[in-house]
């Protein structure tokens, strides 16, 4: 008995789609498609920006209220009126704490000792990690405000990351903890050069090119080196040493660092209008 033949059409379609996808990924990685994809991403980000603002304006107060109610778990159901009142008061307290935290971050941005004479653009963080596979934040300023790809982004304590995508009114910042982030740094009184590399969202940073048996006490500060051609201006605090040890066969010190900025609770940041050429 002849076996029924399975149609080849789906396989052909899959093959074509895979080839097209791989071609797009390859061309984008080489930079050949960068202008096209960058333009499309700009249009997409600019289109999504008002939608995101609208949805956030509607959902955030509801979310805050629900969060406040959930925290007040001891109130029984028959006291609904009282529960609503407590929830409302709790929401007010949360909002006040929230406002105080925002004020602290904004005040700190007013006086950044490491920014020097560099111009800066204060921005609000409007989204965290658009991908689970990259440590990024989205800010509410873009090319219309002078923000372009490659500019350093700082928080109240030091370096936050670098702008990697910029649309007209928003930009994506790659955090120093991202696996692709590499920062030229210096430590100690002599300003010994090293590299601070990200290892992924929520993970500590890795100090590299530190010679074995270097004495690095806990808390030693790593700042941007600003060497010729560096991606960041000099003197911006990046991270502090958590621990350092020498492996049995390693020629380098194994250095674990913590970012100086609390990257999990970013509300406001500043983009330094600086490029390697300046």
């Amino acid at each position: 008995m002849a076996r029924p033949r399975r149609s080849r059409r789906p396989r052909t379609i899959l093959l074509i789609l895979v080839l097209v996808s791989v071609t797009i990924v390859t061309l984008d990685a080489r930079g050949s498609l960068r202008s096209v994809t960058s333009g499309l991403r700009t249009v997409a980000a600019d289109s999504m920006s008002p939608v995101r603002s609208l949805v956030n304006a509607v959902t955030r107060p509801v979310g805050s209220f629900l969060a406040g109610s959930v925290h007040y778990g001891a109130v029984s159901q028959q006291n609904q009126k009282l529960q609503a009142e407590v929830g409302r008061l709790r929401q007010q307290v949360l909002q006040q704490n929230d406002a105080e935290q925002r004020l602290r971050q904004l005040t700190a941005l007013e006086n950044l000792p490491f920014a020097g004479n560099l111009q800066e653009v204060a921005c609000q963080v409007i989204a965290y990690n658009t991908s689970d596979f990259a440590a990024t934040v989205t800010i509410d300023k873009g090319r219309a405000d002078g923000v372009t790809i490659g500019m350093p982004v700082v928080g109240s304590g030091g370096l936050v990351g670098m702008v990697v995508l910029a649309s007209h009114h928003t930009a994506t910042v790659r955090l120093v903890t991202d696996g692709q982030s590499v920062v030229g740094a210096a430590y100690g009184t002599a300003g010994t050069p090293a590299i601070v590399a990200g290892q992924g969202w929520g993970k500590p940073l890795s100090g590299q090119l530190v010679p074995a048996d270097t004495r690095l006490p806990r808390g030693t500060l790593f700042s941007t080196s600003g060497l010729q051609g560096a991606a960041f201006p000099p003197g911006i605090p990046v991270a502090r040493v958590i621990r350092a040890s020498t492996g049995t066969v390693a020629s380098q010190e194994i250095v674990t660092l913590a970012p100086v900025v609390d990257l999990a609770h970013l509300r406001y940041v500043a983009v330094l209008l600086w490029g390697p050429a300046s």
Partner: peptide, 10 residues
């Protein structure tokens, strides 16, 4: 992919 910082097309 238009909204992701990962490689375009992935």
């Amino acid at each position: 992919d238009l909204f992701l910082p990962t490689p375009f097309g992935l």
